[in-house]
Design a protein around this nucleic acid. Structure first.
Length: 464
RNA sequence: GAGGUUGUAGCUCAGUUGGUUAGAGCAUCAGAUUGUGGUUCUGAGGGUCGAGGGUUCGAGACCCUUCAUCCUCCCCA
């Protein structure tokens, strides 16, 4: 028999890990709820056609497709066809509904758009929802990159107000403040600014190419970007324009002012600048002074998803070598893909697996998450076991988390188990205790032990 | 899709130019100790050295193939 294993890029989460992950989930959930977002869940799988074409060419390649399993092939002919088509399908990006018509969720935004279109008549717009579920990508796993990972998204659909953008910035700042992740920067940019740049270059149709090249600025430097721009068909004059734009420095307002001068002939570019200004103004009203992360205009921020149209954001921390830990933006016509026009949305996503990795590396999870706060009753068997069950019942009625060691095995073994489980208290319901209708309570941290009445015991354990 | 890394006990890893029966720490189990855990001490179990083939008198080590893993690029959270 071969050793058991799990698929590449997936992980088991042991109890201590789950507790830490839940700490992150709970923190985010609280914030989302505080900002008026409502919970939503969608299926792990979607129809393939729902997903294809939404994430760019590279994205399509990374969608996990589910092989049709015969449930839908009623005729023998169809089953033969399935076999024939399967080989062809393995060569991306070709796919055929004969072989696969379902796929695993790639992100939470597209399913959300699909949901909104399907439920448009029952929703109150603007609709604010948050969603925390796993997504799957057929990517090559590496540091901070998994094939199964969780996203926590908050989106507002049905409102073009930039207050929404400002609120989402606040959500990011509040979250990383509460989680105590240090050196966080929320980078903000606008697709309209990027469009403005490509206008300046005289090649508005090459916006995506310019964007992709620009995005690599902090990785390959200006020389690398210039080289890539050249390869992507931008002439020297255009490259000079791009250089002028990325040379812009200073604080956010100084950057925007400088860009305004450069972009004076681009209506789209100016529009982008105004949107950023307004967003930052709203944000200033809403932001808490205690939040220590920076919100920074970054003209080189691109983001690959091709449905973004307005403000785009991305979150990084310089405390750890790690890709972005969150991202999002405005999409003007997401639901249009599914037939519902003129509905604008904006949203952000938290990459909680990466946030976990960052927090783990920095060792900043609260310590008390690891220590069990529970109670164990030793099983002495016979009448004592019955007595223990009665106490167990009473404790649970008092909402005290407790367990009885199920087997009347050697005392030593039971104590070792309690120790390994980091029990806070161990209760000893033995002959003497039973006869006196009392219970010996041992504090497992201090080792101190005393015999108490059941009421006294509850009073002590209730504070754990 | 391209490039590299590492595969030896449940886990983390030693293992010399190829040489007897492949080791350690941790973990597990048992005992010291059948009403007192953590710290000790003693002992035990546990391996087709990732898999297949080749070279050799002899392979954990060298060669080929293959699988897995982690990392980098691409792209992304």
């Amino acid at each position: 028999m071969s050793k058991p294993s799990i698929p590449q890029g997936t992980r088991d989460f042991s109890p201590a890990e789950v507790r830490k992950r839940q700490y992150i989930f709970n923190t985010l959930r609280n914030i989302f709820e505080t900002y008026g977002f409502q919970p939503l869940e969608t299926p792990a799988m979607e129809n393939l056609v729902t997903l294809t074409g939404k994430y760019g060419e590279e994205g399509d390649r990374l969608i996990f497709k589910i092989l049709n399993n015969g449930l839908h092939e009623k005729k023998e002919d169809d089953k033969v066809k399935l076999n024939d088509e399967w080989n062809k399908v393995l060569s991306k990006p070709y796919s055929s509904p004969v072989v696969t018509e379902r796929a695993l969720r790639y992100d939470l935004t597209i399913p959300f758009a699909r949901y909104v279109v399907m439920h448009q008549n029952e929703l109150a717009f603007p609709f604010r929802r948050y969603q925390m579920q796993p997504v799957w990508r057929a990517d090559r796993p590496q540091k901070g990159r998994y094939r199964e990972f969780w996203q926590c998204d908050a989106d507002v659909v049905g409102s073009t107000s930039l207050i929404n953008e400002a609120e989402l910035l606040c959500i990011y700042q509040s979250a990383f403040y509460q989680l105590k992740v240090p050196q966080v920067t929320v980078k903000i940019n606008s697709r309209k600014l990027l469009a403005g740049i490509s206008e300046l270059c005289g090649t508005p149709e090459l916006m995506m190419d310019i964007t992709i090249a620009l995005d690599k600025l902090d990785k390959i430097g200006w020389d690398g970007v210039a080289k890539e721009l050249q390869q992507r068909g931008i002439n020297d004059e255009g490259i000079a324009q791009v250089q002028k734009v990325i040379a812009v420095a200073g604080n956010n307002e100084e950057k925007l002012a400088a860009l305004e001068t450069i972009m004076q002939n681009s209506t789209t570019g100016l529009q982008g600048i105004n949107e950023l200004r307004q967003t930052l103004a709203y944000h200033k009203e809403l932001a808490d002074d205690a939040w220590d992360s920076k919100v920074e205009v970054d003209i080189s921020l691109a983001r690959g998803l091709n449905y973004y149209t307005g403000v785009i954001v991305e979150v990084t921390t310089s405390a750890v070598q790690m890709g972005s830990i969150g991202g999002g933006g405005r999409y003007d016509d997401l639901t249009g893909l599914f037939g519902l026009k003129d509905l604008s949305g904006v949203g952000v996503s938290f990459g909680i697996d990466r946030i976990y990795d960052v927090m783990e590396e920095l060792d900043i999870f609260p310590k008390q998450l690891n220590t069990g706060a529970s109670v164990m009753l030793v099983n002495f068997g016979g009448a004592n076991e019955q007595y223990a069950l009665q106490i167990l019942k009473t404790l649970r009625k008092e909402n005290i988390a407790a367990e009885l060691y199920p087997d009347a095995v050697k005392f030593d073994k039971q104590m070792k188990y309690a120790n390994k489980r980091s029990m806070a208290y161990v209760l000893l319901p033995g002959d003497e205790e039973r006869e006196k209708n009392m219970i010996s309570v041992k504090n497992f941290a201090t080792g101190k032990q005393e015999m108490l009445s059941i009421e006294e015991c509850i009073a002590i354990l209730g504070t754990v």
